[in-house]
Amino acid sequence: MATVAVFSPRNVDRVLDFYDDTGYEFMVLGSENATLPDQVAGVIVDATTDFEQAVTLCRDIRRHRESDVVLLLLIERHQVKELALREGVIDDFAVSPFDRTELSVRLQHLLVRHGQPDEHSKIAIGPLILDTDTYQATLAGAPMDLTYMEYELLKFLASHPGKVFSRETLLSRVWGYEYYGGARTVDVHIRRLRAKLGEAYEALIQTVRSVGYKFGIPTELSSDDSP
């Protein structure tokens, strides 16, 4: 379970109380304490008493720990406008009066997203959106039911639009291990993927004769469906 550091010059007990039942480990941070222990994955900074001091602390923390820690700032309503141009310093903020559930959900979201190595977790290309965090594929807004290998194959092709891959390359890059199917399995999966894309979108995966396959957005699809 992740450790979360809390900085609050006046109300540290109140902040800790908000997070009473979240299950995270908490530690209290002083204002000079910008060097965080390694296990700290998130920091909650209470800016309601001294906004500038809080932001300075955030900057100091960022200087030591570039992007591998999440920062949640607690502010008053009138301080919202102060956040302009400081978006690189914090990851999220919450406005007083604080809601217990909102605070823990925000923290949880930050930590979950932070746990994923890839920050750009969505591949959006034409009508197709692949969420690489949740393995969801949506086509023109409707969810697609894919098997794991179908998903991985689609993701691989869609991540390299326009590039042609041979069956052997796809097999080694997508399957990447001993598989009973051999290179012909690629054809089987491509056929199935096209069937799932349906008539309207099957042209997203194109056969390049005697070479292999590529992902491409045909002109008739790109005009009205591009994001």
Binding site: D133, T134, Y135, P143, G176
Partner: peptide, 17 residues
């Protein structure tokens, strides 16, 4: 690989209810 597949299954079960 097995770990990726495990996560895939768990996520799909969650997302598709």
């Amino acid at each position: 690989m097995r770990e990726d597949k495990r996560r895939f299954v768990l996520h799909v079960v969650e997302e598709r209810r």
